[in-house]
Design a protein around this nucleic acid. Structure first.
Lengths: 232, 232
DNA sequence: GGGAATTAAGGTTAATTAAGGTTAATGAAT
DNA sequence: ATTCATTAACCTTAATTAACCTTAATTCCC
């Protein structure tokens, strides 16, 4: 998926070069000469990053930056400007900028700073499965955050318990998940009833996951489950 | 808790100024003249950010940067250098730098860039609604202060309760909002009646937000709601 | 030692109960 | 006189409990 850059710049000549260079690098670029109807633009275009000139007709770049930061707390914003006074730079960062590049700059520097900002804004890797975006399970796509299991475009809605248990199994994909630990993780105890209860959920999950026979939840009696998933 | 800066710089005079300025700003600074025993340093000092001069005796800054990036994928690294060639900058970013500052620089700029890197590295905070007058919710724009939800130019007026509940959901966007806490936050108790009452409001909000199917309020029975919003 | 009896562990399906959803009616506050 | 908030009555669905079934592992006996 192409990353989208919203680029606001009034100098036509520079704008053209930047836009073309970005497009050559594989970005989708929306260039505007001023910040009019910014909020609409953000919503319809939904950029991954904004590159703003500071000296603009009508509304200046800093104001636009603040607006963006206000509405999209996480969206990277790079300011471009000939203003080189320290106070301008400070203003840039306090207006929600995540980087500040002084004109004149080389195209390469802009490119690498854009890449860098996108990398920094990307979801942090070290997060546990709770915050994890999506996991590929064979032909399925599991989105713990959305409580969904997707296969060939059809979406299976999971309940919170189902999703919770599947998440735990995923954490031990192709290894064994201890039954007792699973029970404790989900219910906080390993009573007889919850043990039956777990059986019920395992059956449901097996059922949901039956469309890919590379995926199996193997029972290891007295131990737990071995969740086999191809290609993890 | 003081943020810790690991600062590697061989120019004694500059180093002293930077160190003192940082300390004045409330940072804990460990200054070294070279990158010897870097790995030990990182582990014992466990800095929140590294500031590296590039031109160093023995091992150069880029090499140190790469080492850091390998071991600590998320740790911010700012390069400081008189090298101003584009190729040097590219090298800085490809060596795991998260920012690059050309010498000579103003202390203020260094300070603000350090702050900025720390902010970017910080675990993504939920947009604290209090300070925002507007939040983008997918195709919608929510203005808690005005009790308005806007979509494609049309304005949906929210009642105070509706707005209040939506604000709370926004605070936990893409995470789960505890039902009990929600009830307490809004009504101060979790009586049966208010619980039904909450259901009523959730239904209304689902209805208002139904025009963007990236937005969902998922019920987690026994827990609460998971408000999913794209791009937050 | 090899195969039937025993038993513990888990599986299946259905019933129950608890949590929440929906819609409409009532009550409070402008 | 409306608009918003609450209460009410009834509906739907997830989670749990229950009853009964199957399978793997021991044990027992010859």
């Amino acid at each position: 998926m192409k990353k989208k850059v919203l680029y606001i710049e009034d100098e036509q000549f520079l704008a053209r070069i930047v836009k073309e260079t970005l497009e050559l690098k594989g970005y989708e670029v929306l260039h505007k000469k001023d910040g009019g109807r910014l909020i609409d633009l953000l919503q319809s275009f939904s950029p991954d990053i904004c590159v703003l000139d500071v000296m603009l007709p009508n509304i200046d770049g800093y104001t636009l930056g603040s607006t963006i930061r206000n509405i999209y707390p996480q969206l990277p914003v790079i300011f471009l400007t000939a203003k080189t006074q320290t106070s301008d730079i400070l203003k840039g960062f306090s207006s929600g900028g995540t980087d500040y590049l002084k004109k004149p700059f080389s195209m390469e520097e802009l490119m690498v700073r854009i890449e860098n900002q996108l990398k920094l804004a990307a979801p942090k890797e070290d997060a546990s499965i709770e915050t994890q975006e999506e996991v590929a399970l064979g032909k399925y796509l599991f989105s713990p955050g959305r409580y969904e299991l997707q296969i060939k475009g059809t979406i299976i809605k999971l309940s919170s318990r189902e999703s919770e248990i599947l998440s735990i199994l995923c954490k031990h994909a192709n290894k064994t998940t201890d039954r007792k630990k699973l029970l404790y993780a989900v219910w906080g105890d390993d009573s007889f009833f919850n043990s039956r209860n777990l059986d019920v959920y395992i059956r449901k999950l097996r059922d949901y996951l039956s469309q890919d026979d590379g995926i199996t939840i193997i029972t290891l009696k007295g131990k737990g489950y071995h969740f086999t998933v191809p290609g993890i």
